[in-house]
Nucleic acid binder design. Sequence first.
DNA 1: GCGATGTGCCAAAGCGTTTTTCCAACTGAT
DNA 2: ATCAGTTGGAAAAACGCTTTGGCACATCGC
Lengths: 353, 353
Amino acid sequence: MARGRVGIRQVAEAAGVSPTTVSHALNGKGRVTTETRERIQRIAAELGYRPNASARNLVGGRTGLLGLVVPPTDELLFLASDVAYFVQITNAATNVAMKQGYGLVVTTVPEDRSSPFGQVEVDGAIVVDPLERDPLVLELRAAGVPVVTTGRVLGDEEDGVWVDNDHRASTRLVLDHLARHGSRCPALLTNQPSTSFAFEVEETYAAWCAEHAVEPHLVHVRAGISEDAAAEAARRVLDLRPTCDAAYATLDRLALATLHEATRRNVAVPEEFLIAGATDSEAARWSLPSLTVLNLQPDALGRSATEALIALVEGREPDPRQRTVPCEVIARASTRRRPAGRRPAATAIRVES
Amino acid sequence: MARGRVGIRQVAEAAGVSPTTVSHALNGKGRVTTETRERIQRIAAELGYRPNASARNLVGGRTGLLGLVVPPTDELLFLASDVAYFVQITNAATNVAMKQGYGLVVTTVPEDRSSPFGQVEVDGAIVVDPLERDPLVLELRAAGVPVVTTGRVLGDEEDGVWVDNDHRASTRLVLDHLARHGSRCPALLTNQPSTSFAFEVEETYAAWCAEHAVEPHLVHVRAGISEDAAAEAARRVLDLRPTCDAAYATLDRLALATLHEATRRNVAVPEEFLIAGATDSEAARWSLPSLTVLNLQPDALGRSATEALIALVEGREPDPRQRTVPCEVIARASTRRRPAGRRPAATAIRVES
DNA sequence: GCGATGTGCCAAAGCGTTTTTCCAACTGAT
DNA sequence: ATCAGTTGGAAAAACGCTTTGGCACATCGC
């Protein structure tokens, strides 16, 4: 500790009492007269006393820190800052944690899949979009760290605590929306089904196609949702024309890349091709045509997950242990088919980058 | 500590040595034979020993945590997740911190301007866009917490450590760019000059206008850069037509709002009005027309700031104590004036939201 | 063979809090 | 006046680790 740092000891000395009494006075714990209590508080404030967190944590056995682990995207960037979904979860979590007096440490899974928190020790962790039998989740649990996941851990026997969307229902929402707006055969553009989200979307897509007697067309973006990978996947999706007349992309960046590629190819959206994405973002709102998206409510996910984790950390039972956050389709121009014949002469605009 | 938790003591017992030796063996400190060292390491691993961070920090006097304080935007959201600038700084900082074994706790300044870190104690803090004589910065310094700022603290006597752009030069970059693309009288749309950034931009704008013998037109967005406030400011900017024929908006959200308002009014961008923003974002790339921006390199700012802070925390002298990060104008469609006569018949598109 | 120098390990003293236990001084009832 | 009960406060024991100082023993030079 830096020299001159004022601790509980210095306060005690200045107040002419014992450290015990100072501790009691400041924490409202023991039996101290209000008079002494206030005097001590005043002196502590005057001296600029700030309790040492480490010492407090040592005896308390807690650190006041929560961890949030987001999946890595590409190697360069810690997390694609543009993946608004993660950003919104993170923000919501930070917000809730702050309000409850916790600090939130955001990290990503290191390449070597070692413990993500380095030196720091967290009281609990939120794992975003865990993998199947996620080793990190298992490791944290084994270490006795309470874990909440956003999205479920596939193949997990335990009654884990999670928050998630009902991806089966919401996938149908999107596909039905596309069908209602004239799509006969929508393609699905998604990442490798390593998470419960991707898995359920694919499964539901297949089921929906079977029910509607259309052939499923699935495009997987290659791992590491970089901009290049997205562009490449977008090309493959548009190559499915004219068999497919729409695409549902499970990440707004994929949807935007598809939109971009359509523009490049002079494929009119929404006239000739419908595009829907997930989840909402500023870029989706500002693109032209603006992008229809499934809002996964990352804000609610982040908030609920953090609340559940804090309950867990404080020894309470989260209520409920599993929470499903509703989704909604935000219909925008990219699926809003106009009456035929009124198509704007927009070619000049569409061809410019 | 949970019962059964294996500590240094348990490892020592299992290895038949003293706790001291275990500590030395695991930290590579004292004099221990490689044979014993390895044996202890093996046993520690077998037992699943994980050092208690609080205890370690208590004696070490450090927590391994860095704080990052971003300005509050509106009350609801912890930080406008859409302000890509902050997100990118945060990401870069997280990344650097992680790599160096630190945890980064991101917070915002609480409304009551109390200490932002609640229970948790940080070894150092980065304050993003500090205010004039920022009380938070002063308070942190007074508490002996090393501080690095992104942007300078106006009215600060101390030789503080900061990273910043050269806003005087870069503002000229943008204004010259607008002039080169035909603007006679660009307006400036910015927030209240509470930060060094806003202050210098305004100052430079005034100087530039004087040099070019044009009347300056300044629009301030009201505090709390919400979407409503941005829209309202955008209306005021466009009301300046036809006197003004361009706008430089110092936040991409403001630029986008202006673009949106122009679209609503059927003002063609860039034909009738040029718009440039700062800083770059996915939304700026995807808008139509795509938005010319000044890239402030928030990534570099976040990275440099964190590196400097870590140096400070570890008792080294940051080199340099003040770092200026270069900017560049990314020219896109919103300022790219096409040859007259080839204006696309884009009205049908511009009127749709 | 004797001091000098290394070597491998350990005991003990903190680090700054909280918590438990205990004590002395009152208070009020008998 | 005595006893039980209460009250305000303090002493001391953790919490789990690092660090300092020192103790044996081995090695070496002369």
